[in-house]
Design a protein around this nucleic acid. Structure first.
Length: 478
RNA sequence: UGGGGCGUGGCCAAGCGGUAAGGCGCGGGACUUUGGAUCCCGUAUUCGGGGGUUCGAAUCCUCCCGCCCCAACCA
């Protein structure tokens, strides 16, 4: 209950003084039950659960009436009172509405209103050993609360006739129940049962794992409540079964974060870059814009020096067609800094692995493109001597297919790369004291959030909320 | 003839008798010190299918097809 309230608040809603519990109405419900008994519209039944199932009939055959169905009002009143006093064991008696055992709608075949449960209740303690069924509590609670429209999902359409029947039989204020389709998201599962399985089998770390479609999961992943609300508004609400593409959720997220997230430079998979003609030991502070979408976000200083880290993906010894990043002989812009031209690489003599890239810079090219020289690419970097170390968790969709619900075995379509952990990332120094849950855009890569549970200024852990749109990835694939 | 509901482009979704909104996605272009953002342009002769009514139908009638939900002393 606390978790629900916390999540609802996070989403941006507040019920004010209107926090209601059906248990607040137990006394009223009990009195109404007596009213129905007196009206000959409810009776105490001795049938066991099994017997009740057997006499309910099937979807195509009517059920049969219980032998207890025609007890006198006096006997029913007496029995019901004794049920309340705890004279009978669990499961031995129920109170049923007398409706129609031959109804096409199974919910109307004398539904159970009360069953005996000698257990305590989180709010009413041990006051009751009789508890109302959902259908018997729902409409009446709405009525007490003077709800005008009671919204719920499609499964309850079959329950509406019962909802209406109780209200009419009691002759009380009659709210209107309206059903809508639930929202289904692609590349994940939404049912509580299936999510529980993921948690229990260890496919995820818990209900708040950043890959879970729960509010707690979305929050930990770095989603903003505003983007979730915007998403819901755009999806709309209707009665047709649906499967909304998770790409729409991600679009809403990017749109929101693009306006608000401060930009930072972070090298996820570091590759050393040595600027050969930059003076050894020299350090200069370069000005960088915090958010080009929001001038009021201001600027910051980032340290530049001779040895830097760049992204492994931003260098290719043999560049493929349309590759705009660094490669031997090619010049690129170091974001917020200088134009730099690759002069060669150093390799591990044994493995042949590239250990560092070398280049020269043009001292006149600082900041703006002063010489009018056009360069194809701009890459991000971090000064090696001024970097903050961090663990970065790269998340993707939990399932690799749009409809895991349709898979024979959901486990077989789990995305094996839904989480990749990078333990040696290098971040711009200004990220050193990032507070848990603070969000940033790591330029050219995506939006990231400092993990709420595992990150601290001393040991940074960032979760990738969502990547930036990646046109290059599409070109490279083609 | 158990009962209830739904079918509009790849995914959502307006429209409810006057001649198919919008968003996402996708394709193309402009611009760009994020291959980001932004900005243009394109993307259903047709509304599950057949008949019918009408000057005119996605919208009305009718038959058919398909999909979803219901037989807890769960919610």
């Amino acid at each position: 209950m606390d978790a629900i309230m916390r999540d609802v608040r996070w989403l941006g809603f507040d019920w004010g003084a209107h926090l209601y519990h059906a248990s607040d109405y137990f006394d009223q419900l009990y009195e109404w039950a007596i009213q129905l008994i007196k009206a000959g519209r409810a009776y105490v039944d001795d049938l066991t659960a099994d017997e009740m199932r057997e006499t309910r009939g099937t979807l195509t055959q009517p059920g049969s009436e219980s032998p207890c169905r025609n007890r006198s009002v006096e006997e029913n009143l007496d029995l019901f009172e004794r049920m309340r006093r705890g004279e009978f064991p669990d499961g031995t008696k129920t109170l049923r509405a007398k409706i129609d055992m031959a109804a096409g709608n199974v919910n109307l075949r004398d539904p159970v209103m009360y069953r005996i449960r000698k257990t305590g209740h989180q709010r009413t303690g041990d006051k009751w050993c009789l508890y109302p069924m959902y259908d018997w509590a729902h409409g009446q609670s709405d009525s007490i609360e003077r709800v005008t429209h009671s919204l719920c999902t499609l499964e309850y359409e079959d329950h509406r006739p019962l909802y209406d029947w109780y209200l009419d039989a009691l002759g009380i204020y009659h709210p209107r129940q309206i059903e809508f389709a639930r929202l289904n998201l692609s590349h994940t599962v939404m049912s509580k049962r299936k999510l529980l399985t993921l948690v229990e089998e260890g496919a995820v770390s818990g209900w708040d794992d950043p890959r879970m479609p729960t509010l707690a999961g979305l929050r930990r992943r770095g989603y903003t409540p505003e983007s979730v609300r915007d998403f819901c508004e755009r999806v709309g609400i209707a009665k047709a079964d649906n499967l909304v593409d998770v790409a729409l959720l991600e679009h809403c997220l990017r749109e929101d974060l693009n306006k608000r997230a401060l930009r930072r430079m972070a090298v996820l998979r570091p590759l050393k870059l040595v600027v050969e003609n930059y003076p050894e030991g020299q350090v200069e502070a370069l000005e960088a814009v915090n958010n080009p979408e929001d001038p009021s976000a201001g600027t910051r200083q980032v340290p530049f020096s001779r040895v830097l880290y760049i992204e492994q993906d931003d260098f290719r010894e043999v560049p493929p067609p349309k590759y705009f990043r660094l490669s031997p002989g090619v010049e690129v812009r170091l974001r917020w800094a200088y134009l730099v031209k690759c002069t060669g690489v150093a390799k591990d003599p044994r493995t042949g692995e590239i250990t560092e890239v070398r280049c020269t810079y043009d001292p006149e090219s600082r900041g703006a493109d002063s010489r009018g020289r056009k360069v194809k690419g701009t890459i991000h970097w971090v000064s090696a001597a001024h970097a903050a170390d961090a663990e970065v968790r790269l998340y993707e969709h939990l399932f690799s297919v749009p409809k895991p619900d349709e898979a024979e075995d959901p486990k077989s379509v789990l995305n094996p790369t839904s989480l990749e952990v990078l333990r040696a990332s290098k971040l711009e120094l200004s990220l050193k004291d990032a507070a848990p849950e603070s969000r940033f855009q790591f330029e050219r890569q995506g939006y990231f959030v400092a993990d709420s549970k595992n990150s601290s200024p001393g040991r940074l852990v960032f979760n990738r909320t969502v990547g930036l749109r990646d046109t290059w990835a599409k070109i490279e694939k083609a």
